Simulated assay, not measured.
Amino acid sequence: MNTRVYLRRYWQLYMLLILPVAYFLVFKYGPMYGIIIAFKDFNFFQGINGSEWIGLDAFKEVFAMSDFYKTLRNTLMLNFLDLLFSFPAPLFLAIMLYELKTVWFKKISQTILYIPHFISWVIIGGIVYQVFGTQSGMINNFVTSLGFEAIPFLTDKNDWLITYLIVGVWQSAGWGTIIYLAALTGINRELFEAADVDGAGRLRKIWSITLPSLKPTIVTLLIINVGNMIAIGFERPYIIGNTAVRDYSDVLSTFVYRIGIESGQYTLATVVGLFQAVVGLVFVLGANYLSKKLADQSII
């Protein structure tokens, strides 16, 4: 089909693309100009163009900081543990919801599971302190009433780590089931009917039909999550964390906040952000390459 004829026939579809393309150009590609700050001694009053070039001096300064390596270690550790526990949780939850036969109970369960995703991390932080607080937390009030010592959920770094992971699973698992449930609805029902004829039980059908059908979705989400290993949200570790557990709760996002917002060292903060972006890209490409070689599934 001639290109001009094609455009004339489907021009409405291209018009619909204008807003999303404009969004990415303005809010995603436009700010990339600020990367230059990483190579300049940025002065807020002189602006980006007026600031002096310093080359890689800022990178050398950041890589010489012990706090940078500590926060990098914590970021990788927390993201790896999240990948280990939070990533499979939506998958198992989606399969269980899919296997439910009572429609009204399934709808109520989905609604309850989705709610935590819409709660602000500030509110979740308040809930965490009300439930897990050492002095006035609901759990520790019950534990001490039985004559046992309070459990330092938020003041001991190992206990805090477990609490951090539990809260993360609770907040994200329900919302994460949406993609898997959408993929599950696309499975051919005739496969399950054939399995019933062959006498396959529920677990056998999950293992032989459901999981293989979800393989492309699982691989795609896994690659995306591996790409985010070096990136971490600011709210969760900052709100749940405290000085007593800084050995684990201090991550790259809180490090950028301290040196960028609190100390005004915008050049160093930009260096860390650029480092995260480059390493994240390497992780995505590496995970995609391994997935293509080992599982014959990829996103590129």
Rank of each mutant, 00 (worst) to 15 (best):
E235V: 08
A22C: 08
V128Y: 03
L203K: 02
R236A: 07
Q110V: 01
N225H: 13
Q276F: 09
S291V: 10
I232P: 08
Y129L: 04
Q130D: 13
G34Q: 08
S298E: 11
K157L: 07
L268Q: 11
L56D: 06
Q276V: 15
L161T: 04
L268Y: 15
T267P: 12
N2Q: 11
A277V: 14
D57F: 08
L285Y: 12
S109R: 08
F148V: 07
L97C: 00
I209G: 00
F63W: 05
G30Q: 06
D82H: 07
V169W: 04
R9Q: 12
T111P: 00
L268A: 12
R4D: 13
W11A: 06
S86G: 04
K101A: 10
L83M: 14
V278H: 14
L290N: 12
G286T: 13
T102M: 07
I35F: 08
K157Q: 12
N49H: 06
G125T: 00
G280R: 09
I124P: 11
L290S: 09
F87C: 06
W104I: 09
Y266S: 07
S213K: 03
I179W: 11
A231F: 09
F148N: 05
V5Q: 14
V284I: 15
G55L: 09
L97S: 01
V143R: 04
G133D: 09
A89V: 05
T75M: 01
G34Y: 02
V282H: 08
E52T: 10
S51R: 04
G199E: 05
V169L: 08
H117W: 10
E262R: 14
I230H: 13
V5S: 14
R246A: 14
T102S: 11
F85A: 04
Y114W: 01
K70R: 11
T155G: 14
A22V: 12
L93C: 01
S249M: 02
M15N: 03
V279W: 04
T102K: 15
P20H: 02
F87L: 05
V256H: 04
G50M: 03
L203S: 01
L19N: 05
Y29K: 07
I162C: 01
L93S: 00
H117S: 10
I123K: 05
M77G: 00
L274F: 15
T243V: 13
G264H: 08
L285E: 10
F39K: 05
L161I: 00
K40G: 01
G30L: 12
V282Q: 07
L84T: 13
V5N: 13
A200K: 13
D196H: 15
Y29T: 02
I35N: 06
I218K: 09
E235R: 10
V278G: 12
Q135G: 05
W121L: 07
K215D: 06
R73V: 02
M15V: 14
T185V: 09
A89K: 03
A183L: 07
G199A: 04
G147R: 01
G168Y: 03
V26I: 15
I35E: 01
G273W: 14
S86R: 14
D159F: 13
G264T: 12
Q130N: 11
Q135E: 15
G30S: 07
T155D: 12
P31V: 01
V219M: 15
L211G: 10
L84G: 06
D57T: 11
